[in-house]
Amino acid sequence: MSRVTARRPTLRISPTGTVRRPDTLAVEEPLEIRTRGESLAVTMRTPGADIDLVHGFLFSEGIITSAEDIVTARYCAGTDENGQNTYNVLDVQLRNPVPVTPRNFLTNSSCGLCGKTALDEVRTRTRYPLPEGVPLLEVDTLAKLPDELRSRQQVFDATGGLHAAGLFTVDGAALAVREDVGRHNAVDKVIGWALREGRLPAHDLVLMVSGRASFELVQKAVMAGVPVLGAVSAPSSLAVDLAADSGLTLVGFLRGASMNVYSSAERLAL
């Protein structure tokens, strides 16, 4: 079994009776990000594309501004009870070292603070203000992105338990799709890919996510200069406020030909 999926025993109950059988599940393991050997952050993620994840996370948090800010990123030695390397600790050497404590991450900076403070935090840290009214995206193209994203969710097909995020061109071509148990991790992975590929700011791309649009997903899109964010499910109120404040086109309940546009509808060609 791969590190992405695992088998666990289960009791299946249905109208036809019960049966005991193994079920395929998405793997969830911690990834500790270290710098100079000291712990910077820990996130629960599905193993895979960890280098992209770290790049995207550190960029979204304003710790790095380019791929060149990471000199090296390598797994630390560490074994489980069977003597196997866990590959769950990445030590990052930064070109410009940062103090590891205390860290005020954007993803949790709103805890205990008002919504205005959270919006101000993003406004002061983003490097890529979004251009007004561009790119122009055909609504018919946007409507196809959920199916395009879903068709590339190979691990979801096996487990039914993963979120996905994808970066698409305005013509609907998929550039990068990543899956993870955490929706924010999936977004960090595609943003990290874009950073390493020299595609930031992503002013000509569309970010599509498989679930809801939370504040932190809008924050990551804004930090990366992504002008359009589409979500299959609902946004939160603070996500809409941040999108409107930043000039990001936020689309929720994107299912088939129907959708709700919550901000900057001028980027969509009806």
Rank of each mutant, 00 (worst) to 15 (best):
T126E: 14
D80S: 04
E61W: 01
A41Y: 13
K116V: 11
A244V: 11
L142K: 05
V209T: 13
L248C: 10
C111N: 12
G37I: 02
R127V: 10
L25C: 11
F57W: 15
G115D: 14
E28Y: 00
D52F: 05
E28K: 08
R95P: 11
F168H: 11
R267D: 10
G161E: 15
V71W: 03
V98G: 02
A49D: 15
L250W: 04
G112A: 07
A194C: 05
E29F: 00
S258I: 01
A158R: 13
T124N: 11
R212E: 15
P235S: 14
V228R: 03
G112L: 03
L137W: 07
A174Q: 06
S109F: 09
L229C: 09
W193R: 04
V155Y: 11
C76T: 09
D50K: 01
V89C: 09
S237I: 07
G112E: 11
R74Q: 15
K220L: 11
I51R: 15
V27S: 12
V122S: 01
R20H: 13
A6R: 13
P22M: 01
A186F: 02
R199S: 04
H203R: 05
V206G: 09
E38Y: 08
D241T: 08
A257H: 10
L94M: 09
V4P: 00
V218L: 09
K116F: 12
A176F: 05
D23P: 00
P97E: 09
P47T: 01
V89Q: 13
V177H: 09
R45K: 14
E32L: 04
P30N: 08
R125Q: 13
K220P: 00
N96W: 08
R255W: 06
R103T: 12
C111K: 10
E197Q: 14
L207P: 12
V177G: 12
T16Q: 14
G78R: 11
E121N: 10
V181H: 06
R45P: 03
E29H: 02
P15M: 04
V54T: 08
A194L: 03
P235F: 01
D147A: 14
R150V: 10
A176K: 13
K189I: 02
A186P: 03
A49W: 03
A186N: 08
